[in-house]
Amino acid sequence: MKSWSGSAGICINEHKEILMVKSFGSERWAVPSGGIEEGESPEECCIREIKEETGYDVKVIKKLKVKETTIKNIKVKTYYFRVEKIGDSSGINDPDQIIVEADWKSLSDIKTINHVYPEDLELLLEQYKHLEQSVAFE
């Protein structure tokens, strides 16, 4: 069985919005993600993919989880990271030319938009909970 590994980044801004991307010909949203290249760590992949798909430089805050699933007979392993943006976006520069839009989505958006990976919704909502808790202690 073939296998594929990738990374995804969950980035929440100062307005408590999550950075999401949309592909050409799709009305569904997902967090920025992509395949790990030869010699790249999951963290490096996450940083590169977010830069390509959204134009934002980010730093990895922590590893959240690894999602393992099988899609069309391919073993898929995706590393999820919580990341923080550095500065402003320099614009989408996706070499794969699949990302049409990057946007910040509020908690109410996250609950109502169409997700490419509906199973990610729980993880996204969980990040909001952590956010609320961390803000309470500052």
Rank of each mutant, 00 (worst) to 15 (best):
E27W: 07
I50R: 09
E37Y: 14
A136I: 00
H130Y: 15
S5E: 03
S23E: 12
K62P: 11
E68T: 00
Y79K: 06
S90Q: 05
G25S: 08
W29I: 12
L121N: 06
E119N: 09
L125T: 02
C45W: 02
S90F: 12
S23L: 14
G25L: 06
E138A: 05
V116S: 15
V116H: 14
E138V: 03
V60P: 00
V100Q: 07
L123K: 10
S7K: 02
E126V: 00
E14W: 01
H130K: 09
S106E: 15
H15G: 01
K2C: 08
T112W: 09
M1S: 06
S41V: 08
E17G: 01
I47P: 03
E37N: 13
G6N: 01
G6Q: 01
K111P: 00
G34E: 00
F24C: 09
D57Y: 12
I18A: 04
D57T: 15
E132M: 10
Y80G: 00
I98D: 00
G55M: 04
E27L: 08
K62G: 08
T70H: 06
N73W: 02
E38H: 15
I47F: 10
K67E: 03
V100E: 12
T69N: 10
E138T: 04
D94H: 06
R82K: 13
I47E: 02
F24G: 09
I71S: 07
Y79H: 07
V76W: 02
E52M: 06
I99E: 01
V21K: 02
C46L: 07
S23F: 15
K111R: 13
S7F: 00
Q127F: 00
K2S: 11
S106Y: 14
Y128E: 01
V66G: 12
Y80E: 01
N114L: 13
T69C: 07
G91W: 08
T69M: 12
G91S: 13
S26D: 10
E132Q: 12
E119M: 07
K2V: 15
V60D: 04
Y56T: 03
G9I: 08
G39L: 14
F137W: 12
G25F: 02
E138Y: 07
M1P: 00
V100D: 04
L121K: 08
I18E: 01
K59A: 13
S7M: 05
E27R: 11
A8F: 12
F24Y: 14
T69F: 12
D96R: 15
R28Q: 11
P32V: 09
Y80W: 07
P95E: 05
I47K: 10
V31L: 13
R28L: 10
M1C: 04
S134N: 10
T54C: 05
E43T: 04
V66N: 15
G35K: 04
G55R: 04
I36Q: 04
S106D: 15
S3H: 09
G91N: 11
G25D: 10
S33H: 10
K65R: 14
Q127L: 04
L125C: 06
N114S: 13
V31G: 02
I92D: 03
P118I: 11
A102Y: 05
W104K: 11
K16G: 06
